[in-house]
């Protein structure tokens, strides 16, 4: 990729982000409910106090003026104070990001290993019982809503069997001081193997909930692209060379089959972020997704706007990564 193409790509971000900022801002402004009423709604506050708070938060100004101010501040990296936390929005968000990234990475890992592994297996053993079971299971996995599947997992492993925790990131006994806020890292920094295992146990159910849905999707993509690759002349020619079966499958067929799979996986990671909102809420996972949901319920305008912008940037960057990966895997493409 040339530097020019890179700059072009980054410039494309500007209109995308402007559009998203406008949509989010005005949708929030149009949503019924008043943040001041929600904060001081217990009738003890006088109308004067409410008016004062409204002025403090800038909510007495007309919406277009507030939007202009928001854009101006956002351009300088200033997203205002979170109504609820009374702290800068950026700070609140940054505290929550590691939990979400940790969950997303764990889900990705599960999805990639299971999805690609089963997809290859199903394609190689086409029309066998393995293929049929994998295909039907993946259909179930794709169609099952995450919140419902998450609750089922909780009922089975946490309630009925009692082998895994219901919610949260770590038990009280295992808490360690924050360094990176990635608990799997922080517990190791603190030298607490027991805490590490506890964090891992907490991570398992939400990661499986998120990861399985995506694994099911990736499995279908992998199976289809692997079947296509296996039917190509270059696979026949590779077999005619007398090289090992493993080399034919993994070096010749899979390398080509992975091109669409990896691209789809990178884009789908954005979908994982969306799925996070539900799964983090179900599992009480203190990440970005739950923060946004709470922010929406409390009409925490600055927080929600900043979070959605962050999602948008991430999504666009993931698409960008998908393009880079596609070019890296496919020598015929030059960006």
């Amino acid at each position: 990729m040339t530097p020019v193409a890179l700059v072009e790509r980054l410039l494309q971000l500007v209109p995308v982000l402007l559009g998203i900022a406008a949509v989010v801002f005005f949708m929030m402004a149009l949503t019924p409910g008043d943040p001041v009423e929600l904060m001081l709604g217990d009738a003890l506050a006088t109308p004067e106090q409410k008016e004062s708070l409204r002025r403090d938060m800038g909510l007495d100004r007309p919406a277009p003026e507030r939007f202009a101010l928001f854009l101006k501040n956002a351009a300088t990296g200033e997203f205002g104070m979170s109504f609820h936390h009374r702290r800068p929005v950026g700070q609140v968000i940054l505290e929550r990001v590691p939990a979400t990234v940790e969950l997303t990475l764990a889900s990705m890992l599960i999805a990639l290993v299971l999805g690609i592994g089963l997809g290859v297996l199903a394609a190689v053993k086409r029309d066998s019982w393995i293929d049929r079971v994998a295909t039907v299971t993946s259909l179930v996995g794709v169609s099952m809503p995450g919140f419902w599947f998450g609750i089922l997992l909780i009922l089975l492993f946490a309630v009925a069997l009692g082998v895994l925790p219901v919610s949260g990131r770590i038990g009280y006994a295992g808490e360690v001081p924050f360094v990176t806020r990635f608990l799997l890292v922080d517990t190791l920094i603190a030298g607490r193997v027991d805490s590490f295992l506890d964090a891992l146990r907490h991570l398992l159910l939400p990661a499986v909930t998120l990861g399985l849905a995506m694994a099911a999707f990736l499995m279908r993509v992998t199976r289809a692209s692997m079947l296509e690759a296996l039917a190509q002349d270059y696979v026949t020619f590779a077999e005619a060379k007398g090289i090992s079966r493993a080399r034919v499958l993994f070096r010749h067929a899979l390398k080509n089959a992975l091109i669409p799979t990896v691209t789809v996986a990178a884009i789908e990671t954005g979908t994982l972020l969306g799925g996070n909102m539900i799964v983090e809420t179900v599992f009480g996972w203190p990440g970005l997704g739950r923060l946004v949901v709470e922010g929406i319920f409390t009409r925490n305008y600055p927080l929600v706007q900043a979070c959605v912008l962050l999602y948008a940037v991430t999504y666009v960057l993931l698409n960008f990564c998908a393009d880079l990966l596609y070019a890296a895997l496919n020598p015929r493409v030059r960006l």
């Binding site: 002349d233 270059y234 020619f237 005619a240 010749h252 390398k255 895997l329």
Partner: peptide, 13 residues
């Protein structure tokens, strides 16, 4: 050797 080298050679290697 197959008919069309373009499809018989692996494009990714």
């Amino acid at each position: 050797t197959l008919q069309d080298a373009l499809t018989a050679l692996n494009p990714a290697l």
